[in-house]
């Protein structure tokens, strides 16, 4: 069993996961819920997906972060982008900045701790998927 972390009416909340009818990239159709491994090569057609899930094999595996950034910046996917698999509360803030919008977490993760890990930093040095500015965002802005 897993729990789903996403925004409901503009607020982050955690609820029991419901079954998702995932399809693999071979079975992909527009409007499908596409499930990707972290080593998938982004394809332009995926912009039409309803939901894309990226399956993290380990807490330390950062490939899904690059893949997410590519889906947002290069493929132009604007729908719900979900991290599943080895999703740890301490990685959430990195995932958010790479464009993830929902997270499937193991049932043993404490919801209170999880919700406390969404934004440990009020500002960042770099531009990111959710803050697309030229290069070093703060320097470009302030000077």
């Amino acid at each position: 069993m897993t729990q789903l972390l996403n925004q409901q009416g503009g607020r982050w909340s955690i609820s029991a996961s419901t079954d998702t009818a995932w399809v693999s990239l071979e079975e992909f159709q527009p409007d499908a819920a596409l499930l990707l491994d972290v080593d998938a090569e982004p394809q332009a057609a995926w912009a039409s997906a309803r939901l894309i899930g990226i399956d993290f094999p380990a807490l330390t595996d950062g490939r899904g972060l690059s893949l997410a950034a590519l889906l947002r910046q290069r493929v132009g996917f604007t729908g719900d982008l979900r991290a599943i698999g080895a999703v740890h509360e301490d990685i959430l803030h990195f995932m958010l900045r790479c464009g993830f919008t929902s997270f499937e977490l193991a049932d043993d993760r404490d919801p209170e701790i999880v919700l406390g890990q969404l934004a440990p930093y009020s500002q960042h040095y770099q531009t990111s998927v959710i803050n697309p500015m030229p290069a070093l965002v703060r320097l470009a802005n302030t000077h």
Partner: peptide, 16 residues
């Protein structure tokens, strides 16, 4: 210093 700032807590490259 530019590289320091750019690489500090970079969202994509913290888990290489």
């Amino acid at each position: 210093e530019l590289i320091r700032q750019w690489s500090t807590s970079h969202p994509e490259f913290e888990w290489l």
